[in-house]
Write a protein that binds this DNA or RNA. Structure first.
Lengths: 227, 227
DNA sequence: CGGATGTTTCGGTCAGGATCGAACTATGAA
DNA sequence: TTCATAGTTCGATCCTGACCGAAACATCCG
C-alpha cells in the first residue's frame, strides 16, 4: 500500500453528483437544513441523510441541531479551499453542467467563497490592501500592519477584537476565477460581513454570486482602489 | 439540474484509489510510462490503460508517445493545485494510508509540487523573494521586480529568457503543509531546476520529497535568508 | 521477417454504492 | 396527549464501474 495522504477518500466523497450539489450549496456560506439540502441535491430525504452522514464523517461538513432541525455547514476554510480548487479546475476544463452564461460572469465578478468575498472584487480588495501596505506577507504569513488596522477601523472593523480568535486573522485563498489570492481568515470574513451590513453587496437568491448596489460599488472602489 | 462547475466529475476521477495513486506519482513532476504507472497504482496493465484514458479525457493528465512507450504527465499547474489542495485536506483530516512518520516530515520540509519547490523550503524561498522586494504583488498578480531579475540572474536564471513563455512567469501556489504560498510558474520551475542542477537538492527515489545536501542547505539559506 | 516488448481492446465477473418506500425516532405545536 | 414535521434506519433493487485474462495491435530489435 502506498503511503501519504489519502486523496481518493475525500475526492470520492465529493465525486458523487448529489454530494457535490450539497457541498456547492454550502459554499454560499450559509448553514442549511437536511431538507433544504435534499432539495438542493434533488434527492429524497433518506438519501440526503445518508450522504450528509458520510460528508460529516469525512470532515467536509459539520452539523448542529436546533430543535427538530439539523443544520449543516462546511467544516471549515480548508474544505472551502478544496472545493474552490475543484471549481477552478472544472471551469478551466469546461466541465460545466450548463452552457457558460451570465451566471458565470456574475460568479466571476463577486461571489461568496465559504465566508469571504471572492472573484474580481475579492482579488481587488486583497491587492489594494497589500499594495497600500495594510497587509504584509512575512515569515508568519499574511498579517495586518498598523496602518492596516487603522484603515479597517475606519471602515468599521476592529482588528484588536478579531485578533483573539483561534482561526488565523489573515489567510490567502486562491481564487479560481482570477487565479490569484483573495483575503480569507477572520479579517476576510469580517470585511465581507461589513459589506453586507453596509449593503454595498447583497446576496443573490439561490446562488453564491453577490451583487453590488450602485452606491456600494462606488464606495467599494473608493475603499479599495485599483491604483 | 444545477448549473455551474461540475466538480463531481473531476472529483470522481480522483476518487478511485488506483487513479489517485497515479496522480500522486505524477505530482513528483516526472513523466512516467503506462507500465510504471500500473506498478505505482498496483493494478494490471489493461486496468491502468483504462484509467489513464479516463484521466486524459478528464484533462488531468496529458500523454506523449515515444516509440512503443507512452509517457504521461500532469496536464498542468491547475491539476497540481487541485491535488495539492486535496492532499492538504487529507492530511488535516488525518486521512493517511499509513501512520504519520518520518516521510511526512520530509514531505513538509521540501518536496516537488508538480514542477516547483514546495514545503517549508518552498515557502521560505517565496517569502524571502517577496520580503526583499524581488517579487511583488500587483494588479496583474505576482511579478518579478528589476532587482529580482538581477538577483536570479546572479543565481543563474535569466528572467528575460523565461518571460517569453505563455505560462505565467510567477504564480502563487498554496502550500498544503505550510498553508501559505510558494512560488510556481515559469520562474518557480526554473529556480527548482537550478537547485537540482547545482545539486543543492536531490530527488528521493520513489517519493515527492527532495533532500538538501549539506552544502546545498547552506547555499540555499544564504540565497533565501529567513530574515 | 520473426520474436519480444509495450499498450489497447474486448468480454466477463463481481462488488459496492446510490436510490427510495416503509417504518421508526425525535421534536414541536395545538 | 395527539398530531404534524424533520430526520434516521432498514431492506430491497438496480446500476455502475473496477478488475483481469485473453487477444489484438503497434513498435523495436536481432
Amino acid at each position: 500500500m502506498k503511503e501519504g495522504p489519502d486523496i481518493a477518500h475525500v475526492a470520492a466523497l465529493i465525486g458523487d453528483p448529489a454530494r457535490a450539489n450539497i457541498l456547492t450549496a454550502l459554499m454560499a456560506g450559509k448553514a442549511l437544513t437536511a431538507s433544504e439540502l435534499a432539495e438542493e441535491a434533488g434527492i429524497a430525504m433518506p438519501t440526503a441523510s445518508g450522504h450528509l452522514r458520510k460528508l460529516e464523517e469525512g470532515g467536509l461538513v459539520v452539523a448542529r441541531k436546533q430543535g427538530r432541525h439539523k443544520y449543516f455547514a462546511l467544516a471549515g476554510a480548508q474544505a472551502g479551499d478544496v472545493l474552490e480548487a475543484l471549481m477552478g479546475f472544472a471551469v478551466a476544463q469546461g466541465h460545466l453542467r450548463t452552457r457558460t452564461g451570465p451566471r458565470d460572469a456574475a460568479l466571476r465578478a463577486a461571489r461568496v467563497c465559504y465566508n469571504h468575498l471572492a472573484g474580481q472584487a475579492g482579488v481587488q480588495m486583497y491587492d489594494s490592501l497589500v499594495r497600500r501596505g495594510y497587509l504584509q506577507i512575512g515569515e508568519d504569513g499574511l498579517s495586518v500592519t498598523e496602518a492596516g488596522g487603522i484603515f479597517v477601523a475606519d471602515l468599521g472593523v476592529s482588528v484588536h477584537e478579531l485578533a483573539g480568535r483561534r482561526a488565523p486573522l489573515c489567510r490567502e485563498c486562491l481564487d479560481w476565477s482570477e487565479r490569484r489570492s483573495h483575503l480569507a481568515g477572520v479579517l476576510g470574513r469580517a470585511l465581507f460581513d461589513l459589506l453586507l451590513e453596509k449593503r454595498w453587496v447583497d446576496r443573490e437568491a439561490g446562488s453564491r454570486a453577490v451583487r453590488f448596489s450602485k452606491a456600494g460599488r462606488v464606495a467599494f472602489d473608493a475603499a479599495f482602489p485599483t491604483n
